[in-house]
């Protein structure tokens, strides 16, 4: 069996990645267009970036979005970790089926349904809509993602190291914080990042649960895009893409280095005659 790419595979990859990336690259390219018209190249310019940073309204919305995403993903990691732990470790308790249903369903639930149901809840208990309701709403779907990530990590977790800790005198409670949490920490970090992006990206559930004056960046972009194509949005998109791209690429380089280092150490240890 050849490990390299066959022609068909190469075509599939090229086509797939072109489909995924060409639109984004076009967007980035035209954000430096002097002309207001999208289809006319009016020369290189960064003027739309300048205008973007003059736009107090958008900056305010961006700030709210970041605040919301940070709060919701932190809450999601706390609740999602506990939920993932319950899913992985407590194989039988009353209501487990319902519990696992409530964990998995939000992953696929159409956003309009989630949004409407949360809105009706907040209205019927007379909870004024604002940052608080948005945080709750975002947490309710982000925690499922964290729970799934943590659960898969815990399922492949070697339980004997927890038993070893207890055997050496650590109480179960202490074991969780000294052994389990540090070992699964990378899963919590990726869960947090995942929640952060999901929250930062959400339009529908946010529009149902936000109150006046609490428009987030995606909601602002959404209303702007509905009215038509604007060069400022190109610039804004480019900035957001750049931040994510730098973040993801850096993270994967760091991860790869750590992996290479680890493999090297393992090879050396295996080679060492003991």
């Amino acid at each position: 069996m050849t490990k390299g790419l066959t022609k068909i595979n190469l075509v599939a990859l090229t086509f797939g990645f072109a489909f995924l990336y060409v639109p984004i690259l076009i967007l980035v390219f035209f954000s430096f267009n002097e002309s207001r018209l999208v289809n006319v190249w009016g020369g290189f310019s960064v003027k739309w970036y300048g205008e973007l940073f003059q736009n107090e309204d958008l900056l305010q919305a961006a700030w709210i979005s970041l605040l919301l995403a940070a709060a919701a993903s932190t809450l999601s990691v706390i609740l999602g970790t506990v939920a993932g732990f319950v899913m992985a470790r407590f194989t039988s308790f009353r209501g487990r089926t319902l519990f696992s249903g409530m964990i998995y369903a939000p992953l696929v639930m159409p956003e309009v349904i989630t949004g409407l149901s949360l809105l009706l809840l907040f209205v019927s208990i007379d909870w004024g809509r604002g940052l608080g309701t948005m945080i709750i709403a975002h947490t309710s779907f982000c925690m499922s993602y964290v729970a799934v990530v943590v659960q898969s990590r815990l399922v492949s977790f070697d339980r004997s190291i927890e038993e070893a800790a207890q055997d050496l005198g650590a109480t179960p409670f202490k074991t969780f914080f000294v052994i389990t949490l540090p070992v699964i920490a990378p899963a919590l970090v990726s869960g947090w990042l995942l929640s952060f992006t999901l929250s930062l990206d959400n339009v529908v559930i946010t529009s149902f649960t936000s109150g006046p004056g609490w428009d987030t960046l995606p909601v602002k972009i959404f209303s702007a895009v509905k009215l038509g194509v604007k060069p400022e949005i190109n610039a804004l998109s480019t900035i957001m893409i750049a931040i994510v791209a730098i973040g993801v690429v850096t993270a994967s380089i760091v991860q790869k280095r750590a992996m290479v280092e680890r493999q090297r150490a393992e090879r050396m240890a295996a080679a060492a005659n003991d």
Binding site: P23, T197, S237
Partner: peptide, 17 residues
């Protein structure tokens, strides 16, 4: 990577096209 970039921006890119 595209999954981490805003879904809205990706939809918007297609509108431009």
């Amino acid at each position: 990577l595209p999954f981490w970039t805003s879904f809205l921006i990706r939809v918007y890119a297609w509108i431009v096209i």
